[in-house]
Design a protein around this nucleic acid. Sequence first.
DNA 1: CGAATAGTGTCTCTAAGACATTATGCA
DNA 2: TGCATAATGTCTTAGAGACACTATTCG
Lengths: 232, 232
Amino acid sequence: MRGMAETFDRFAVTVDLVILTVQRDTLNVLTVTRANPPFQGRIALPGGFVEATENLITAAVRELAEETGLSQDVGHLEQLASYGDPDRDPRGRVITVAYLALLADPPAPVAASDAADAQWLAVEPLLADPSALAFDHHRILTDGVERARSKLEYSSLAVQFCPTEFTIAALRRIYEAVWGTTVDPRNFHRKVTGTPGFVVATDRYTDGDRGRPARLYQAGPASQLHPPLLRR
Amino acid sequence: MRGMAETFDRFAVTVDLVILTVQRDTLNVLTVTRANPPFQGRIALPGGFVEATENLITAAVRELAEETGLSQDVGHLEQLASYGDPDRDPRGRVITVAYLALLADPPAPVAASDAADAQWLAVEPLLADPSALAFDHHRILTDGVERARSKLEYSSLAVQFCPTEFTIAALRRIYEAVWGTTVDPRNFHRKVTGTPGFVVATDRYTDGDRGRPARLYQAGPASQLHPPLLRR
DNA sequence: CGAATAGTGTCTCTAAGACATTATGCA
DNA sequence: TGCATAATGTCTTAGAGACACTATTCG
C-alpha cells in the first residue's frame, strides 16, 4: 500500500486484554475459559475481534465492558503491544493488539457470550507456568505485568487499583502486591504524602475496627512521579 | 476467533519505522518521499506490508534493511505501538505496527523500490508541524521520539547512537541532541563512568586535532541504568 | 603562550534507607 | 491495660546539581 501496484495479504485482528486488579493483597488477572477449539477448556486472556469500522482503543473498551460490565471511565486502559507470529493461532494468521487495564473494586466477572467462564486468578502462578494460558498469552501476561510494575515506579498509576478514597497503607499494599516485594511503611508514607499532587488528604478516616483509624486520601492531579519511586 | 461461529473482518497490516540517528549533534529521522497516491510527493515514514508467513519483527528488520542496507545486528530495534484508526489510510482499513530503530553511523539512505526518495531530516521541525508527514505519521514520530527520550533515562540505549568506540563527550552530545537540552559535562562524566557496565574504557585516544585527546570507550554489558539518568 | 577540549575535585542539598517512638482506636 | 494499626521523627548515606580547577593537545 506504500506502492499500489504490489499485492498484500490480509490478517484477522483481535484485541486481547490484560485486566489486573489487587484483591486481598494479591495481584489478579481476569481470565476466561475457552468454550471452543482450539485450546477448548483452557484458560486465556479475554479478547475478541476488532470490527470493521472501530478503532483499536474502542475495541478494547468494548471488550472490557463485555467482560466486566465496566464503562471506559473506570480505571486505566492503555495499549501494551502487538503480537503477530504466524503460528500464534493454529487457525490462521491473527494479529492481536494487547491492552493493559488496571481496575479497582472489580465486579464479579461476566461470562461473555464467547467464553464458557470468566474468573479472577492470581498472577504469580500463571507467570510461573508458561503453559498455563492458551496461545501466546503467557507472553502477553508477562509483558503486561512488567509494564504495570515499571509504571508504578514513575507514575501515579497505583491509585487506579484503589477505590475513590483509600488509606496510605492500602496504597502501599498495592505496590507490594504488584511488585511482589515489601515496602517500608514509614518511608513510603513520607514519599507519597511528600510528592505534590500524588494524593490529596480528605478530612475523613476509616472506622478503626482494629488499631488507630487511618486518614482517607483521594487520587491527586499528578500523573508522573519525579523523582520516581524505585523498586529495590 | 474466540468463538469460531462469528464472522470477522480482515485488515491489511503494515510495519512503519521510526529510524533515528544523531548527525552533527542533531536528532534525525529517516523519511521517504511517497511515489504514489495518496499523499503522493509528501514525506512519510518508511514502511511496508507484512508478508503472509513473516512475523512482525522480521518484517521490521526486512524493511530496515531495504531502506538502509543495514543488517539486523546493527543498532537497536524495538516495537513501538500499533495504530489502527479506521480512517488513517484513505484507501481502506490498514493497521500499522510501528517500530523504533536507533542507528549509529547511518549509511546514505537507499531509495527502496516503492519510495521516490529517502532522506534524513531533522526531527525538531517535523515535530513542530503536525501536517509535515503523511497519514498519522506525525503521531507515530512523536511517540517514537518520546520513547527514545525516556529510554535514555533508565537504559544504556544511548550507546546505540554511537560507533563502536566513542568519547564521553560524544555520548553526552547524544543525550543533548535527543533530549534537546544541555547536560553538565562534569556530572555526566561522573555518572557515566561511575555506573558499572555502562561503558568500558579502552587504552586508545582520539587524535587531538584541537584540545586534549579524549579517551575512547566502548559499550558495556549493562542494559539498565540504576539509578536512572533523569532529564531535568 | 593562548585557545580549545578533556578530565578531576569539592561543596551543597535532596531524598532514600534504616531505624524508634508516639498516637489513637478497640477489647 | 494490652493489642493493633497509623503517623511522625531522626540519623546516615547515596547521589544529583552546581561549581572551579588542572591536564593535554594544537597553533
